[in-house]
Simulated scan of single mutants.
Amino acid sequence: MNLLLTGHHLDITPALRAYVENKLDRVVRHFDQIIDIAVILGVEKPSEKDKRQRAEVNLRLKGTVLHVDHFAEDVYTAIDGLIDKLDRQVLKHKGKVQDHQNEALKHVSSGL
C-alpha cells in the first residue's frame, strides 16, 4: 500500500502525518486489498467561516476508486470525519465483493 499525503495551503508536519497513518490503519485492518491511498489536507476559502479545514482521500482498490471528503473547523476533526466515512464505504465495498463471490458459488452448486 502506497500513501501519498499532500497539503493544500497547509504544511504537513510529522505529527499530522503520524495521525493520518494511525487513523488509516483502521481502514487497512478491515480491507487489505488496497493499492494506494492519496490524502489531501487543505484550507478552504474564507467564505466558509465555520468549516474551513478540508480532508479528502482517493482510495484505489482493485477495480474501483473510492473518493471521500469532509469539512470541519479543525484539521484533526476533518480527518476523524473523513476516516469514519471512508471506513463505512470500505466495509460496504467489502460486503459487496463478498456477497458477489458467495452468489457465484450458489449458482454453481445449484446448477449441478
Rank of each mutant, 00 (worst) to 15 (best):
Lys62Ile: 15
Ile79Lys: 01
Val97Arg: 01
Phe31Asp: 07
Ala38Leu: 15
Lys96Asn: 15
Leu16Trp: 04
Leu4Phe: 15
Ile79Trp: 03
Leu105Tyr: 04
Asn102Thr: 07
Gln53His: 10
Glu21Leu: 06
Ile83Val: 06
Thr77Ala: 15
Glu103His: 08
Asp11Thr: 14
Gln98Trp: 05
Lys51Asp: 13
Gly42Lys: 01
Asp36Tyr: 09
Asp87Trp: 01
His30Tyr: 11
Ala38Met: 13
Val28Thr: 11
Gly7Trp: 01
Asp25Ile: 07
Gly81Ile: 05
Asp84Ile: 05
Lys106Arg: 12
Gln33Gly: 08
Glu103Ala: 07
Leu24Trp: 04
Leu66Thr: 11
Glu48Arg: 01
Glu48Trp: 06
Ala72Met: 10
Asp25Arg: 06
Ser109Ala: 14
Tyr19Ile: 10
Gly95Glu: 12
Val108Ala: 08
His30Glu: 13
Glu56Phe: 05
Ile35Ala: 07
Tyr76Pro: 05
His100Glu: 08
Val28Gly: 07
Ser109Gly: 10
Arg54Ala: 11
Ile35Tyr: 10
His100Asn: 08
His70Glu: 11
Asp11Phe: 09
Asp25Cys: 05
Leu86Pro: 11
Ser47Phe: 03
Ala38Cys: 15
Val90Glu: 10
Thr6Asp: 14
Val57Ser: 04
Gly42Met: 02
Leu16Pro: 00
Arg26Pro: 06
Gly7Val: 01
Ala18Glu: 01
Gln98Cys: 04
Ile83Asp: 00
Leu10Ser: 00
Gly7Ile: 00
Gly63Gln: 03
Tyr76Phe: 11
Asp84Phe: 02
Arg60Asn: 14
Asp11Tyr: 10
Leu59Gln: 04
Val75Met: 11
Gln33Asp: 14
Leu41Lys: 00
Asp36Cys: 09
His70Asn: 09
Thr6Met: 11
Asn102Glu: 13
Ile34Lys: 00
Ser47Pro: 00
Leu82Phe: 04
His8Thr: 10
Phe31Lys: 00
Leu4Gln: 15
His9Lys: 04
Lys96Cys: 08
Arg54Asp: 12
Arg29Gly: 09
Arg17Cys: 05
